[in-house]
C-alpha cells in the first residue's frame, strides 16, 4: 500500500496541486468573508473527495491503467489505495482549515466544535467517494458521464414530480417512507451513524468486484 501511495505521489504531482489550492483558498475565504469556516470546509472536502476518482481517470486517460493493473498488487489494494487517498485528503483539508482558522481568527471559532462530529461528514464520504467508486473502477470516464447524466435526469425528474405531485399514485407511500427515514435518523443519531458505516463498508467489496470485472 505504501508503495502504491508513493507511486501516485511520484506520478501525479500536478494532480495533487489543484485540491491543495482549493483547500487553501477555502480556508482563506472563510476568514475574508467572515462566514463560518464550516461552509468552506464542506466545499473543500467535496473537491478533495473527488480527487481519488480524478487520479483513476487520469491513469485511464494516459493509458497507464494497464500498467497499474499489471503491478503485483491485488484489486483490493487498489480499492484501498483510492479510499486511503480520499481519507488522507479529507484529513489534510480538515487540519489545514482548522489551522488557518486558528491562526487567522483565533481560538474562538472552535466554539462550534459539536458541528464537526456531525454525521454529515459520513454522508459526504459515502456519496462523493464511496458510492461512485465502483463506477469509476468499472467504467472509468464513461461511468462518470453516466453518473452526471443520471444526476441531471434525476434532478429534472424531481422538478417534474413537483408539478405532477397530485397525479402520482405512489407519491404518498414513497414520500412518507422518505420522510419517516429522515425523521427517524435525525432523532436517533447512533443508529443513523451505524447505518451509514454499514453502507460504507458495503461499498468496499462492491468496488473490488467492480475492479475485477474490468478488462483492459
Amino acid at each position: 500500500m505504501r508503495d502504491l501511495l508513493r507511486r501516485d505521489l511520484k506520478l501525479h504531482k500536478v494532480a495533487f496541486v489543484l485540491p491543495a489550492v482549493v483547500a487553501l483558498l477555502g480556508g482563506l475565504a472563510a476568514f475574508w468573508t467572515g462566514e463560518p469556516p464550516i461552509v468552506f470546509l464542506v466545499l473543500s472536502l467535496g473537491v478533495v473527495l473527488l480527487q481519488p476518482h480524478a487520479l483513476h481517470l487520469r491513469e485511464e486517460h494516459h493509458g497507464t491503467l494497464r500498467e497499474l493493473h499489471v503491478l503485483p498488487v491485488t484489486p483490493r489494494q487498489i480499492v484501498g489505495l483510492r479510499v486511503v487517498e480520499g481519507l488522507l485528503g479529507a484529513l489534510g483539508v480538515a487540519l489545514l482549515h482548522g489551522m488557518l482558522a486558528l491562526v487567522l481568527q483565533g481560538p474562538g471559532v472552535f466554539q462550534g466544535l459539536g458541528q464537526l462530529v456531525s454525521p454529515g461528514w459520513l454522508w459526504m464520504l459515502l456519496m462523493v467517494l464511496l458510492v461512485p467508486l465502483p463506477v469509476t473502477l468499472r467504467w472509468g470516464g464513461r461511468g462518470w458521464m453516466g453518473l452526471i447524466l443520471g444526476a441531471f435526469a434525476l434532478g429534472g425528474g424531481l422538478t417534474m414530480l413537483g408539478q405532477f405531485e397530485g397525479a402520482l399514485p405512489f407519491r404518498t407511500a414513497l414520500f412518507r417512507a422518505l420522510l419517516w427515514t429522515m425523521d427517524y435518523t435525525t432523532a436517533h443519531p447512533w443508529q443513523h451513524t451505524l447505518a451509514l458505516l454499514a453502507l460504507m463498508a458495503a461499498c468496499l467489496p462492491l468496488s473490488e468486484a467492480a475492479l475485477r470485472r474490468r478488462s483492459l
Binding site: R7, K10, L11, H12, H62, G63, P72
Partner: peptide, 20 residues
C-alpha cells in the same frame, strides 16, 4: 504500445515502478 505518465521523467517512472 507502452504508455507512461507524460509529464514524468524516466528516473521518476522507474522509482514508482521498482519498489513493487
Amino acid at each position: 504500445t507502452p504508455a507512461f505518465q507524460p509529464g514524468a521523467r524516466l528516473a521518476t517512472l522507474k522509482e514508482a515502478h521498482a519498489p513493487f
